[in-house]
Write a protein that binds this DNA or RNA. Structure first.
Lengths: 333, 333
DNA sequence: TAAATTTATGAATACGTATTCATATAATAT
DNA sequence: ATATTATATGAATACGTATTCATAAATTTA
């Protein structure tokens, strides 16, 4: 029977070499004679040796760990995001510490966890970083990128879609199709995402002199979308177009509208945001705005890796445009 | 400006005590005078000190890390599972290393990652462990629990639903409602889950002398369910009942069936498995079998923690029953 | 008051690795 | 044949913490 964990020392003894030589084989990049190398690998195999990443990181100062802080993993948009982040980072030799945050702002406790484990970088999706939190990461020289959010303070990098521009285009499109009475079912009313989307939309409506505009805010879930739509539509029977803060809200809204007995898009048009796969399902066929997830993720990783390599790098902001995906939830002229 | 990471030594110097005393404060459970404790905490605060988890784990042999290997994170069932696992384990002071496996069997590389980081335990959802892989974990005394899968070899613990019994009840229910021509849209035909569900279903049909039974296997995704249903229904116009390997398949199947122009449940009944939230959405109102996720997760964690505490613990098997959730996708008498 | 115990602390060490430094051998150039 | 360089290896050390051991001070007991 072998010990719980064999160490490089154990391997060294079995192979008849020094611990240093074993380390050289596993750390790579050093010269070891073929003969000893073979012996060492055999010994390692026999003992089931695996280098200890913690001991290694103590020396190298590299943990090869990245923290992923995510809210709302139940939202298919973020499940997909997590999957893609994992696949990309894993291929690059990084490991993911997953943290499911429940708050709009990342918490002290979560930060501590990431600092203790000395992650090299942190990706924060759909949540904010207080300036004190940002400072903590900065002080520990941990790279941080916000995904799908941005901060005014410009302290940290962020990658997101230009929500303002997108919603302006969306609103213009919907107005031109002849809709008269609008509703916006949003996420939490204190998030930048929500505010930007609202701002762009509202501006266009004003420009076009449309003042029938109801707003109902909740959170980014199906249930919230369902409930909001139910309330809106029963109280305001004339609404003919509902713009939703994201796709999952839109699906909830569509179901609520149909339950009431209204048809989509004949009676009411529904527009989403994100372009999650479910929107393409024939039961919904949701017209929406696509966020170019893959490109956004690639951009996030590029910024993150760059900041890890060079901790003097200036915070970067990467803004994507996205584009409209027309299906059948919006009434055509 | 402070150094990249302050150490307990830095804190000790600033507070005018020894490193050992600092460690005693942060490790807890040791006696330190209130006066020095206060000084140390102040110094730590000033320096932004965080204990280094890697150095700590080197001494204590405890990493407080748990590996979660998951396939199919895009399946809402598993998104929910991940969220719950995270919330429970996080509350217990554990951190999650997330691994998105793409294979039916957990891979060498993934095992190495977990061994290198010295995780205390591993939860494997929806994937298998070869006996050689199981051996590796055993050798390193890493606790392993399979979630929603089991192994015949009885080498490792597992938690799952009694698929055989469940599908027997499901089949009996469907037959009694008068269905005559059945189809089973399954996941990969080489997984225990699929085989058990098929076995239970098939047995009952034989008992009741029903021989109209088509089988189409794919994988556990919406797209696969859609495609399978499309093929089945266009080729076999008489099928009046489709049992699906899981809910997400069922949703795909329902959409395909409706696209063809058939009504659910009037023309075709559809039955799912898992009881994901989406099944309750009015567009689907899927009749299904509920896996008691929360209890399964609690059971998994209990077994895991117990094996972590006592590595001589015998592998345990926890089998749940689950229950039928009747909605409107199955034709009533 | 002396002896015994408790409380509080620092010095020293171990955890498992990577890496520097020193050294010895082999290969090449002069 | 000698000087130089390249190759190969081990000894020693550092990373940042927890913990044992020793010891001094404070407290309790006899």
């Amino acid at each position: 029977m072998s010990k719980k964990h064999s160490t490089s020392q154990d391997v060294a003894e079995l192979a008849g070499v020094s611990q240093a030589t074993v380390s050289r084989v596993f750390a790579g990049g050093a010269i070891v004679s073929e003969k000893k190398k073979k012996k060492i690998l055999e010994a390692a195999e026999a003992l089931g040796y695996q280098p200890n990443a913690h001991a290694r990181s103590l020396i190298t100062k590299r943990t090869r760990m990245i923290g992923v802080v995510m809210r709302n993993i139940r939202n298919p948009f973020y499940s997909a995001v997590l999957e893609i982040f994992h696949n990309r980072l894993s291929a690059l030799g990084y490991h993911l510490i997953f943290i499911n945050s429940t708050n709009e702002e990342i918490q002290e406790k979560e930060i501590s966890q990431l600092l203790e484990y000395n992650v090299e970088g942190v990706i924060i999706t759909d949540a904010l970083l207080s300036s004190s939190a940002a400072l903590k990461f900065k002080r520990s020289e941990i790279a941080v990128v916000l995904f799908n959010r941005y901060t005014e303070q410009a302290g940290s990098s962020s990658v997101f879609c230009d929500n303002y521009l997108a919603t302006k285009q969306i609103a213009a499109y919907l107005v031109e199709l002849g809709h008269k009475s609008f509703a916006f079912i949003s996420g939490p009313s204190d998030t930048s995402t929500t505010l930007d989307r609202l701002k762009g939309f509202e501006e266009v409506l004003k420009e076009r002199n449309i003042d029938e505009f109801m707003i109902e805010s909740g959170n980014y879930t199906y249930e919230s979308g369902f409930k909001s739509a139910q309330e809106l539509m029963t109280k305001n029977k004339h609404i003919d177009c509902v713009f939703c803060g994201n796709d999952i809200i839109a699906l909830g809204a569509m179901d609520a509208i149909r339950v009431i007995g209204l048809r989509i898009p004949e009676d009411v048009s529904v527009f989403g945001f994100d372009n999650i796969r479910m929107g393409a399902w024939p039961s919904y066929s949701l017209t929406t705005w696509e966020q170019p997830v893959e490109e956004m993720i690639d951009g996030t990783i590029e910024i993150l890796l760059n900041e890890i390599k060079d901790n003097t790098a200036k915070p970067k902001t990467l803004m994507f445009k996205g584009h409209m995906v027309v299906r059948n939830s919006v009434k055509k002229k």
